[in-house]
Simulated assay, not measured.
Amino acid sequence: MSRDDPATENTAGVANAAAEVRTGVMRLARRLRSERDPGELTLGRMAVLGRLERDGPATTSGLAVAERVTPQSMARMVQHLISAGLAERAPDPDDRRAAIIRITDTGRERVQQDRDRREAWLAQAMTELSDVEQDLLVLAARLLDRLADS
């Protein structure tokens, strides 16, 4: 392909756009993380609690697949959450040899407090945007969510 080929230009344009999106998403993720209390759970443990809160009970192996970590790492995270009273282990009703992990009321409260704190910062920051910019940001968030599922 030549340098003047529209396909080459389009590919370069998409690559540049991807780099810009990645940079913006990463900077926002770091900023949102900075809004967490220093004594909070690790990001991995909070992600597991959030998944249990959103998706319901799951096996340790199911959580490992969903969070893209090794089963051994997930077992350690789950054990920590159970020890802290944020999750509990119960027999799997479909397979008595297996166990499912559920979030406790205390775990649910912890997730909600963490979300509330970070969403309060984001809502305040978004007040500096115009109505059109806020609408575009919501649309972009929906598109990013779709990309995350691909």
Rank of each mutant, 00 (worst) to 15 (best):
P71D: 08
A84T: 15
E88F: 04
T70H: 14
V48G: 12
L81S: 12
H80E: 08
T59D: 08
G50C: 01
V65R: 05
S61N: 04
E53R: 10
V65G: 12
A66C: 10
Q72C: 02
T70L: 09
S61F: 01
E67N: 13
L52G: 02
A90I: 10
D55G: 11
V78F: 09
E67F: 05
P57G: 00
P91R: 05
A58Q: 02
D92A: 02
Q72H: 15
P71Y: 00
D92P: 00
Q72P: 06
L63P: 04
A84F: 15
A90P: 08
V48S: 12
Q72M: 10
A66N: 06
A64W: 00
A64K: 00
G56M: 02
P91T: 04
R76I: 11
P57Q: 02
V69P: 14
R89S: 08
V69H: 07
A90F: 11
V65P: 11
R89L: 13
E88R: 03
A84N: 12
S83C: 06
M77D: 11
L52R: 06
M74V: 11
S73W: 10
G56S: 04
V65N: 09
V69T: 13
L63E: 01
V69D: 04
T60G: 03
S73E: 07
P93V: 02
T60R: 03
H80N: 15
P93Q: 06
P93K: 04
R89E: 08
A64G: 02
S61T: 02
A58L: 01
R68W: 06
L49R: 14
A64C: 07
P93N: 03
A87F: 05
V69F: 13
A66I: 09
M74F: 15
S61L: 02
T70P: 13
A75V: 05
A64Y: 00
L86P: 12
A66R: 09
L81V: 14
D92I: 00
R54Y: 05
E67T: 04
P71H: 10
L86W: 07
R54S: 00
P57F: 01
E53Q: 11
A64S: 07
A87I: 07
L52A: 12
S61P: 00
T60M: 02
T60F: 03
R76T: 15
R54F: 00
V65F: 13
L49G: 03
P91E: 07
L52N: 06
D92W: 01
R89M: 09
G62N: 03
G85H: 04
A75Q: 08
R68D: 11
S83Q: 10
H80M: 13
L81Q: 10
I82V: 12
V78N: 14
D92F: 01
T60S: 08
M74T: 11
T59A: 05
R68G: 15
G50I: 04
S73P: 08
L49F: 10
A84K: 14
V48N: 15
I82C: 13
A58C: 06
A66S: 11
A90H: 10
A66P: 11
L49A: 14
L52C: 04
G85Y: 02
V78L: 15
